[in-house]
């Protein structure tokens, strides 16, 4: 071992490499942010009637604009806002799960948590006749219950990622059957409604549905971000993280509860928009590179994904599809690609 005479050159080299990576992160995040703003504005402007940027801007500012106040303010604005908010919620919660369980397949929409929230929301609306915040609360409780159930069923001398994922997929299938059954039994067993709760849809989005998601983001994103460094250390295994001073059990509970709550609240508003939680993290990882936290990049990716997919679902095809149909079509090939590449080299983001 050489005496620690630091050549300042190496420290400089390291800090230059660090700022290069930080620059890449900033560029990617700025691009994602601009993309979201652009897609958000376009989805406010375009529809059966086109409104210019100035009209849209005036509506956002709260001015009365002939026709636009209703079409943009009441129909398009809550829908676009819910797209951004739900996408961000799915994105950040998904990558939290994927990082925590060190497996891209362990996202909440694959392991049954979205399905649990969805089934509970359908039950609350169809059977109990509830709406608004009550539905969100029931969805959150159900999401946490499913997370706990999957964890307990997968527990045998510790939790192995693969066992948890397989059990989660099974639970998800059962819960989707419950959703189908409830919708079949109810008077609301129509095609659009069924698709909302099975694949996710923003049709009929209102402020009542959107506001809880925005509030949840405001509270829970800072909670997740305050633990982002712990999440990074826990990637190296619980023992390494604990040895570096992380209270692993506490951090894990905080991260899981916050992520489940975000998924459940977003699901109770927009349904389990297919594959967004699953896709955002891996896409963000490929964009920003393997260094630094993926939480915010994934939230931005998820938001952009849902806004663009919803716009495409409404206007690019003859029929107006629910957003989940488009994200589902995007997600399936990626799932196959991921399964193949995991098979080849063992899984990670």
């Amino acid at each position: 071992m050489r005496a620690a005479t630091t050549t300042p050159a190496l420290a400089d080299l390291l800090s230059r490499a660090r700022s290069r990576r930080a620059l890449r992160r900033r560029i990617v995040m700025t691009a994602l942010g601009l993309g979201i703003v652009a897609a958000f504005l376009v989805s406010l402007m375009v529809g059966h009637t086109f409104y210019g940027l100035d009209d849209v801007w005036n509506v956002i500012l709260g001015h009365e604009v002939e026709g636009a106040t209703f079409t943009v303010g009441t129909l398009r604005l809550p829908r676009a806002t819910l797209a951004v908010a739900a996408g961000a919620a799915f994105g950040i919660a998904g990558v939290t799960f994927q990082t925590l369980l060190r497996n891209p397949l362990a996202s909440p929409d694959i392991v049954g948590i979205s399905s649990g929230a969805s089934a509970a929301a359908v039950f609350a609306i169809v059977v109990l006749g509830l709406s608004g915040a009550a539905v969100s609360v029931i969805a959150v409780v159900a999401g946490l219950a499913v997370a706990l159930l999957v964890y307990l069923l997968a527990y045998r001398h510790g939790v192995a990622g693969t066992r948890l994922i397989l059990i989660g997929i099974g639970i998800a299938a059962m819960l989707n059957a419950v959703v189908s059954y409830l919708l079949e039994r109810s008077s609301q067993g129509e095609y659009q409604e069924a698709l909302r709760w099975l694949a996710g849809s923003l049709n009929g989005a209102s402020w009542t549905a959107t506001v809880p998601v925005v509030l949840a983001l405001g509270v829970l994103v800072p909670v997740l971000m305050s633990h982002s460094r712990h999440l990074g250390l826990m990637q190296m295994g619980d023992d390494v993280a604990a040895a570096l001073g992380v209270r692993v059990e506490v951090a894990r509970i905080v991260l899981v509860v916050a992520a489940v709550a975000l998924v459940a609240i977003a699901t109770s508003a927009a349904g389990p928009i297919a594959f967004v939680a699953f896709l955002s993290g891996p896409i963000a990882a490929r964009l920003v590179g393997p260094h630094g936290s993926l939480l915010v990049p994934s939230a931005l990716t998820g938001a952009l994904l849902v806004v663009v997919a919803d716009f495409a679902a409404q206007w690019l095809f003859g029929t107006r599809y629910p957003v989940g149909v488009v994200t589902g079509v995007l997600g399936a090939p990626f799932l196959i690609y991921l399964l193949v590449s995991i098979n080849r080299k063992g899984g990670s983001l």
């Binding site: 060190r102 990074g232 990637q235 190296m236 295994g237 023992d239 390494v240 604990a242 040895a243 590179g289 393997p290 990670s348 983001l349």
Partner: peptide, 11 residues
């Protein structure tokens, strides 16, 4: 502490 099999995050 260096445990027996620490995991290196990919990349």
């Amino acid at each position: 502490l260096l445990p027996q099999s620490p995991l290196a995050p990919e990349g």
